[in-house]
Write a protein that binds this DNA or RNA. Structure first.
Lengths: 141, 141
DNA sequence: CTTGACCTTCCAGTTACTGGAAACCCCATC
DNA sequence: GATGGGGTTTCCAGTAACTGGAAGGTCAAG
């Protein structure tokens, strides 16, 4: 692969694992800068662009929001970044993940318990329905 | 509280913990049937409506989608329901929750590991950025 | 010259709400 | 009677991060 061969969006999609649509969406939403165009008005990408998109894809796969990804990208590009800024972002995300996991886990445990107590036969009696009929648990917000 | 006193939406909101907006939204999206109106065209609700909305709120708080809530509601109303139908819904939801928890947990562990290895000082070296720079982990889909 | 595989833009739909605007209703007060 | 306050109504828009589809341009092969 030549160092400066220009790639089209489909090739970049194949290289990054991101759908072309998503790459265009990232451009449109300002997460990456607008791609150069060739004579046909087709977007063209360099290897550096592929690297940037891989960074984005990886950050997204770790659950960072696009907003966070934008900040991570600018830290990534900043050679003088302070690692504490990166770490702060990561820790905030970690806390968010923990919150979401705890919420889901609580639901999961309740559902598992109810499902386990439900006969699951042709009769109408059902602890699941009965539970839903009762007062909802306090949901913290 | 009289048995058949008609409540206005704000009172129902207070009784169910659901915002008025959300109650209107549930009506509009067909999850509950359209409320009767009084002379002012204000929505009025019975105690039975409050009970239905509590059911909905509780199911939502357990993470069921509105679509699922619709099905649960019709099972709730069906005196001849088979508990296995309820259970099937619950088990599908459980599987979904487990999938989502596992996904989040994997992210969480990676982030926690990276954050722990990051010095978090004023220097630019950062394992978090380095990880994101590398190839993204295969994400199953 | 047509076909097929790309690419382009634009619009709509997804989920479950939430916020805000403009207007109406009712009651209490000045 | 005017005003104010608190409810209510409808409608429109925005959220997050895409995804699907339509209509049309470009290019190489057959």
């Amino acid at each position: 692969m030549q160092p400066d061969c220009e790639l089209m969006i489909g090739e970049v999609a194949a290289l990054t694992g991101l759908p072309s649509k998503t790459i265009r969406y990232y451009e449109e939403s300002g997460i990456i800068e607008s791609a150069r165009r060739n004579d046909n008005r087709y977007r063209t990408y360099s290897q550096a662009d592929v690297q940037t998109l891989r960074f984005v894809a990886h950050a997204r796969s770790l659950g960072f929001s696009l907003k966070d990804v934008g900040e991570l990208l600018s830290l990534y590009r900043d050679r003088k970044r302070a690692s504490k800024d990166v770490r702060r972002l990561a820790l905030a995300h970690l806390a968010d993940l923990d919150r979401r996991i705890a919420d889901l886990q609580a639901m999961r445990n309740t559902i598992a318990d109810l499902a386990q107590r439900c006969h699951g036969d042709d009769r109408p009696e059902c602890p699941i329905i009965e539970e839903l009929e009762g007062a909802p648990n306090r949901r913290k917000r």
